[in-house]
Design a binder for these strands. Structure first.
Lengths: 200, 200
DNA sequence: CACCTTATGACACTCTGTGTCATTATGTAA
DNA sequence: TTACATAATGACACAGAGTGTCATAAGGTG
């Protein structure tokens, strides 16, 4: 259900010639070389050999070039939420579910060093950091559904999912700033500030 | 120490003729009437009888017209953090301190209905919601200092302050969406999802 | 080969946000 | 009252983000 519109499975028409991942990679490279704000969308398009408008067809905004890479993480995490209830709840309850989802997200990252570069870029730019709220909205929604499915009242579920998102995001940021190879310990530590409200 | 540059206490020169609060109020009114994105900075300036550049002198961005009103809350909250340790810790520990600060912030609001309008506007516009990260960065910093002063390890303190900010923001949003007059119960409920990590 | 679908990019536009600079208004000091 | 200093004001110009329209190109399918 995650890939409802993943690939329209086009049968005819001109096939795409632009590789979004390659373009995003190029953009990250240019950001690293010349700085984020010194690199315009036009610069990126020119360097990629495409038109500015075509660039916007693949990336809704400049921030998307950076945040786009987090989609696999969010998807894997959402998947873990979905399978958690079906497989019968292990011990640890709801918080364990949140933890598993966060770890599943981390496991979905193919190249951690690229992700670290992305996150550091985000950390350096408040406007990119702010974008977390939009970029993680799907994740927030998924966590909320998981929590209400787990029996939490909607109100507590909202607070907990908001805190969960913030804590895990902070964990990623701290990991990115560190030299450690494994983000999981950061995620685990971050989730220790959460608890299910008594009486839920 | 909060008002280090509150008022330069100018001794000569032309005094200001623009009332920022009045301008922000006017802007909020225009946003309510015509929609946020349908109201340009130029529209606001024209309506306020000033130039667009003068508008930017008082408000760094369009979002500032909306978020500016939260400054008193943040300041009052920060003040509560500062006085918490001096007055000897009451019972409840660190979490009680966070709760007191959040409540102090709420108490600093002169007109709750205006704040509710602001928050609803923010809720409707993802780009404004995102701005919370920047607008609350000072609050985040303050909470972090408070937590480390309380003896928490820096790592836990970062996670907890991130979760704290997110939970209280979510509380404000839920309150704004409700018809309830008092935001405090929302804040208290939100903070129940937090805990100090065992062993801190 | 005709056709169809879709990618592509040229063009023009609005709006945000910034920088520069001359002008104006208002205080203080002589 | 007359400088004078200070700061507000806004006119002008600009880069860049993001959007809409539309003609064209390019590759598949029948």
């Amino acid at each position: 259900m995650l890939s409802e519109d993943a690939k329209p499975a086009r049968t005819s028409g001109r096939p795409a010639t632009i590789d979004p991942e390659a373009v995003a990679g190029l953009a990250l490279q240019l950001f690293a070389e010349n700085g984020y704000e010194n690199t315009s969308m036009e610069d990126i398009a020119r360097e990629a050999g495409i038109g500015r408008k075509s660039l916007y067809r693949y990336f809704a905004s400049k921030a998307d070039l950076v945040w786009g890479g987090s989609e696999p993480v969010v998807e894997a995490s959402a998947l873990a939420f979905g399978s958690f209830h079906r497989e019968g709840k292990p011990d640890g309850g709801v918080l364990a579910g949140l933890r598993e989802a966060a770890i599943a997200g981390a496991a979905a990252i193919p190249d951690l060093s690229v992700t670290r570069g992305r996150l550091r870029l985000i950390a350096e730019h408040p406007e990119l950091t702010s974008h977390s709220y939009e970029s993680l909205s799907f994740q927030r929604e998924r966590a909320l559904v998981f929590l209400t499915d787990s029996g939490l009242p909607i109100s507590s579920a909202r607070f907990l999912s908001a805190a969960y998102l913030a804590a895990t995001f902070e964990a990623w940021m701290q990991w990115a700033a560190s030299p450690d190879p494994d983000p999981v310990p950061y995620l685990v530590a971050a989730l220790e500030v959460l608890q299910v409200p008594r009486g839920s």
